[in-house]
Design a protein around this nucleic acid. Structure first.
Length: 498
RNA sequence: GCCCCCAUCGUCUAGUGGCCCAGGACGUGGCCCUCUCAAGGCCAAAACACGAGUUCGAACCUCGUUGGGGGCACCA
């Protein structure tokens, strides 16, 4: 454990072989929160030692995703820092050098076994149902002899010399001490035959050289955790605080999300990939709030947090080691909550692209007027054009049968529209102050329920049975158009009545 | 098969031996508000996986069982 007076340095270390998903984003979020809260540094390190698995664009997408969430890093491949380079592909020599140090200390050894032989050994072990591990052939080799073979150019890897006796106790911050028999830990490969390091070595070396105080990572590393501690101790380094986060399970809670299931999610308007979320109408405030609460809690009732709230309130102590099922319904809830929390201006800006891509010619002044009456009616930004798109349509096409009021005839409905027309046409402008009371009085005089009367008007004016509040909508549409549409509605009803 | 981790309402969780015949949230059902739809408010149904033990007392501690998850590569 690091002494508490040491500066907090945490790192998010993704491999750029895939897309940034919710689990990774949550790890990065916790890193960020801890760093910001403690006045420490948040470092982005790209774990791209395996060039064969390079995916073009992945690194860019990753950074874009983190920035969209608001998780700015203090050191990283794009902005540099005092512990660079921050791409493992640029640190090959460092790892090789450290592997040599381990050999010199008799903590590692050269291995000349071919992949073919190894896979045969593995098959054999599988068949006999014994633990699958390296059989130790080269561990027994004389170091001087081995060095000669290496010098002669014989293909080789470098393996860690895991102690065969005793056990090791490691401490996970969430789970406490974990003790494992050393004989159950393999002699893992540190350096491949092509000279590149493997994760086990590279990550430990980097974490030390970058002076990482807390390693926050997924629980898929729990099983190699003892090995990692062995490596760190073999160098004689101080261990960081290890925090293994639980994984995310699919919504059913049965297992983690498969590739195919992830791809199918998009049909329902959801995604586990951060970079899809913006286009689906989700806002980063909601994403961050939602994922933070899958594995962390503040108390027994507070659920809504801004990033700044969380910086203030986050603590490693309140992390939960149990796996969590992803619940997209709750995600929708958080998105609606945070949307309602936005200012009119802000929401206007965010919703604009969705109106445009839905094909609307948007007058921003009108959009600004619409926002207050649609804000509580949308849960994702892409709901906005379906709720408020009709404000940008010149004409409206009500269905005749929908123009007829509940329990009324076409003739009665037409008459109702006519008196509404007479009233509204006399008003200088239509808005909530000028129109509401007169309309209600009128409904009363016609012996109609407000619901019946407003219903007919709603369909005539908006072309739909469901809309934002009628009078506010009419105020935005404007007197002239409202009257035009009412006349049109009357004509439709009269045609039907005859 | 071997190793490791986890276990409270359908889901996310609060709970660290008595405040708990278990609290909050999403979702679900009902009611209120109401010009429709929302939003909001109120109410309801809904859980300590099982079995032993420790203790005056256990959701909380121990052991076992069961269930779930992760890992066992010259991937990360």
């Amino acid at each position: 454990m690091k002494p508490s007076n040491q500066p907090i340095r945490v790192r998010f270390a993704p491999s750029p072989t895939g897309r940034l998903h919710l689990g990774g984003a949550r790890t990065a979020l916790y890193d960020y929160l801890l760093a910001r809260q403690m006045g420490g540094k948040f470092i982005l390190r790209i774990e791209d030692i395996d060039l064969k698995r390079f995916v073009p664009g992945a690194e860019e997408e990753l950074m874009q995703g983190l920035r969209w969430l608001g998780l700015e890093w203090d050191e990283g491949p794009d902005i540099g820092g005092s512990c660079g380079p921050y791409r493992q592909s640029e640190r090959k020599e460092i790892y090789l050098d450290h592997a040599q140090q381990l050999i010199a200390r008799d903590k590692a050894y050269y291995c000349f076994c071919t992949p073919e032989r190894l896979s045969k050994v593995r098959q054999e072990q599988q068949r006999s149902k014994s633990p699958q591990k390296y059989d130790g052939t080269c561990r027994k080799l004389d170091p001087v002899e081995a060095a000669k073979r290496v010098a002669a150019g014989e293909p080789h890897v470098i393996r860690f010399k895991t102690p065969k006796e005793g056990s090791i106790t490691v401490r996970d911050h969430l789970r406490g001490d974990i003790t494992v028999e050393n004989r159950s830990i393999d002699d893992y490969i540190l350096i491949r035959s092509d000279g590149f390091a493997l994760y086990h070595l590279a990550a430990m070396v980097d974490d030390h050289l970058m002076d990482i105080s807390h390693v926050i990572r997924g629980s898929e590393w729990l099983s190699t955790f003892p090995l990692h501690a062995h490596i760190v101790r073999a160098f004689g380094w101080q261990e960081p605080v290890w925090v293994h986060l639980s994984i995310f399970l699919k919504p059913s809670g049965k297992g983690k999300m498969s590739k195919r299931e992830s791809a199918e999610l998009i049909k329902d308007g959801y995604s586990i990939f951060v970079n899809d979320l913006e286009g689906l109408g989700y806002i980063p405030e909601a994403v961050v709030n939602w994922i933070a609460l899958m594995g962390w809690s503040y108390d027994d009732h507070t659920e809504m947090f801004s990033l700044d709230d969380m910086i203030e309130k986050f603590s490693l102590e309140r992390l939960n080691p149990a796996p969590a099922a992803i619940n997209f319904t709750k995600f929708d809830h958080f998105n609606g909550l945070h949307i309602r929390n936005l200012s009119t201006q802000d929401l206007c800006k965010r919703v604009l692209p969705f109106f445009k891509s839905a094909g609307y010619q948007v007058d921003e002044k009108i959009l600004l007027e619409i926002i207050p009456i649609i804000q509580q009616r949308i849960t994702t930004l892409d709901d906005a054009p379906v709720v408020g798109g009709f404000f940008f349509e010149d004409t409206v096409h009500p269905k005749t049968e929908e123009l007829i009021g509940a329990k009324m005839t076409a003739k009665e409905s037409a008459d109702a529209l006519q008196v509404a027309y007479d009233l509204l046409s006399k008003l200088p402008v239509i808005n909530i102050d000028t129109a509401e009371i007169p309309l209600r009085v009128l409904a009363d005089q016609l012996h109609l329920k407000a619901g019946q009367f407003f219903g007919i008007l709603r369909v005539a004016v908006t072309g739909r049975t469901v809309s934002p509040p009628l009078i506010e909508s009419m105020a935005i549409i404007g007197k002239e158009k409202v009257l035009e549409r009412i006349i049109y509605g009357i004509k439709m009803l009269e045609k039907m009545a005859t």
